[in-house]
Design a protein around this nucleic acid. Structure first.
Lengths: 209, 209
DNA sequence: CAGCTTTGTCACCGGATGGTGATAACAGGC
DNA sequence: GCCTGTTATCACCATCCGGTGACAAAGCTG
């Protein structure tokens, strides 16, 4: 059943276009990427599919527009966690991990898109990859400590591993409610994950690499 | 073009069924889960799609059979890494991470299936989830050290985070050749990842949780 | 009023999908 | 030989897909 009934017959291009983008986000978050087709999109948006071709030049155009919208949402969510340079490197890495975790948990669409990137033919979701990468990099640059990074620690590799673990947790939780064997359903489950993540970061800096 | 031409007209049910399973693995690894349909599968296997319904009761049956096959492959690959109890917990965790990484790297199908699990409607790939979980658990039990686990360390959470990071690395590498910002293409890229992973594990045990 | 652009709607196309019923080729038992 | 059951093939169905061309209605300009 369409979430938006086609009761709105006003001649308003912008409103229709916005409804299409919102419908794309809804389908992506609710049914996954495989369900996102032109027909389903038109039905969900409550408009004719012809308009999708007219206004967005097909699905790819919708994806590009949605990619921008999602990127700005991610940016604002990350800013909630931290928006100024961290005092030192461990707390920087910790707030990075915490912010990413919170942002992805709060916005299921982000996780869905990430999952789709893995399973989709490359190119279709390229706008998302580019937009997300840019947002993340901007955020890292903005909140990076002023101090030079500690010697003997491979910061990019450490952050990549941490971000990967977080991504896997988000995806696994959505798919099966658990990461490998670790349950990820209740808030306390997530708190346990975050606590261990923080401890791991602290150990990585303390123990040296 | 079909990998297997339909030149084999021998009346051999087992051989045909085996060809179907192999074709499913091929499609899954080459084109992803979205491309795995009854028609494409029949074409790839070089047989009539009717046989898929007769022998496997549809796609779900093929998935179940493929799931078993993949599980045994994963088990044997893991056994290559380690097949007896580890002397202590850090080296146990390390050989777990190393074994998982090597197994997934050597068998692209494993990564593909994992990606499909994230993006697919649940249920269709349930056989894979169950089979893989069982294999991993068996392996953990078989290679777990005889000593009691160190106090103050949340072993399941640590292993879940590590396994998640490895999964994300495999998936990201296949999709974009990089994990977040870390390149994952050459062997030295992977060596760098593994080195940091090992250091992280060592630090986790040394630094305490 | 006429003329034109924009916005929205409908009908249709070729092709691919999942699924099924009828039928042909081959094997073995009698 | 003939009969029966298994294996494999073909033809067909309804349905969905992405995509396009034609057309009705609304609004704006003259």
């Amino acid at each position: 059943m369409p979430a938006t009934d086609r009761t709105d017959h006003r001649r308003d291009r912008d409103a229709t276009a916005a409804r299409v983008i919102a419908a794309a986000a809804t389908i992506l978050a609710r049914d996954g990427a495989t369900a996102l087709g032109v027909n389903a999109l038109a039905k969900e948006a409550g408009c004719d599919k012809q308009l999708i071709y007219r206004y967005f030049d097909g699905l790819d155009g919708v994806m590009a527009a949605l990619g921008e919208a999602v990127a700005t949402r991610l940016a604002s969510r990350l800013a909630e966690a931290r928006n100024s340079p961290a005092p030192d490197w461990p707390s920087f890495s910790q707030s990075l991990a915490r912010g990413l975790l919170a942002a992805c948990r709060a916005d299921p669409l982000l996780g869905r898109i990430r999952a789709a990137e893995f399973a989709s033919p490359p190119g279709r979701l390229a706008p998302f990859v580019a937009a997300r990468g840019q947002v993340l990099q901007d955020w890292v640059v903005r909140t990076r400590p002023a101090l030079p990074p500690p010697a003997g620690t491979d910061i990019p590799a450490l952050h990549a591993l941490l971000a990967g673990a977080i991504e896997a947790a988000i995806l696994s939780a959505a798919a099966s409610g658990a990461l490998v064997g670790l349950p990820l359903q209740t808030d306390s489950d997530w708190a346990r994950l975050e606590q261990n993540l923080m401890a791991l970061i602290a150990a990585a800096y303390r123990g040296g690499g």
